[in-house]
Simulated scan of single mutants.
Amino acid sequence: MPTATLATAPGAGLRLAELAEANRPTQLPLLTRIVELLDASEAVTHLLVRGSLASGTADRLSDVDFVVGVHDRDLPAFTAALDDLMTIAGGALLPGWRDTIVADLGGAGFVFLLQHEGKLQQVDLYLAPASRISTIQGQIAAKVLLDRPPAEITTTQIGQARRHLDELLARPRTCTELLIEHLVLAVLLHKRIQRGQRFVAYAEWHRLHTATKDLIKTALAPASGVWGWYRLREEIALTPIGRACLADLDAAITSPAIPDTAAVDAALDRVLKLTRRACPHALDGLADAVTAYRTYLELA
């Protein structure tokens, strides 16, 4: 992990008191912990909190949602260090999911799951080059927690940050990353069900089925040149494992369009069994994390 990414930054000047006075959410201790963790990096120039925590409408299910400005020069190293920072120092159960739902603001989003007060809590970190922050502030409603003037940003550094983000967002996801996507989506779906958000639950349920399809293709047809849902039987149903995986996918897509909690839990069981069958290496090093995840999910 690069030393510069984790070095303590002098004169942080965090603006947490203002947020606390306006809104005393149950997530405030967790928010404070993550803010102090990120503030300790000299690479971080800005921290914005957005969503319900910024608007004062948070409930116990609300996620902790940040925009993290990172000096353009340091963005590749900071991105590479982020999983270690959040799992080792931040206490996240799993590596981050590269968020494919968040709006494109010129950066990259990551979702982490942490234990907070005995339950799973979602922390969203949207990493953006410092050169983009003023534009982002004009696009979203957010409260500023940290505004640290960055060192000079050159045109070359801006270009390097942009290429890094383009490569990151274009890189195919691994089986491990697709498994983590299922775990994150299951948490999101549990929240949608509890809140009665049927339309959003429908969309995320379809996204979970698509992640299952992508997991199967990545495991069993990694060189496929066929886009989307086409030719699955021709490519996958050539082996007993492939046919079993397609049976799992069929069970997923024939489930009710809007799930209940039992359906989400069944889907999670199904994809974990599918992963052990088709790409067991995706679980390497994650067995204890998945067990902890399942325990906290049951307590939600």
Score class of each variant (00 low, 15 high):
6 L>P: 03
8 T>K: 12
10 P>T: 11
13 G>C: 09
13 G>N: 14
21 E>D: 12
26 T>S: 12
27 Q>H: 13
33 R>E: 15
37 L>H: 03
38 L>S: 04
39 D>A: 15
40 A>M: 06
44 V>I: 13
47 L>V: 10
57 T>F: 04
58 A>C: 07
58 A>K: 01
62 S>H: 06
77 A>C: 07
85 L>C: 07
89 A>N: 13
103 A>E: 14
105 L>I: 10
107 G>A: 10
107 G>D: 09
109 G>E: 03
117 E>R: 15
126 Y>G: 06
127 L>N: 04
131 S>C: 12
132 R>L: 10
134 S>T: 14
140 I>D: 04
141 A>T: 14
141 A>E: 14
144 V>W: 00
148 R>A: 08
150 P>N: 07
152 E>I: 05
152 E>K: 10
160 Q>S: 13
162 R>A: 15
170 A>W: 05
174 T>H: 06
177 E>R: 12
178 L>W: 00
179 L>E: 04
182 H>A: 08
187 V>C: 02
190 H>S: 07
192 R>W: 02
194 Q>L: 14
195 R>V: 03
196 G>R: 09
198 R>G: 07
198 R>P: 03
206 H>P: 05
207 R>Y: 07
208 L>P: 01
216 I>F: 00
221 A>C: 11
227 W>F: 13
229 W>G: 05
229 W>L: 10
234 E>M: 10
242 G>R: 01
243 R>L: 11
251 A>Y: 05
258 I>Y: 00
261 T>N: 06
263 A>G: 13
264 V>Q: 03
265 D>F: 00
266 A>T: 14
271 V>K: 04
300 A>F: 09
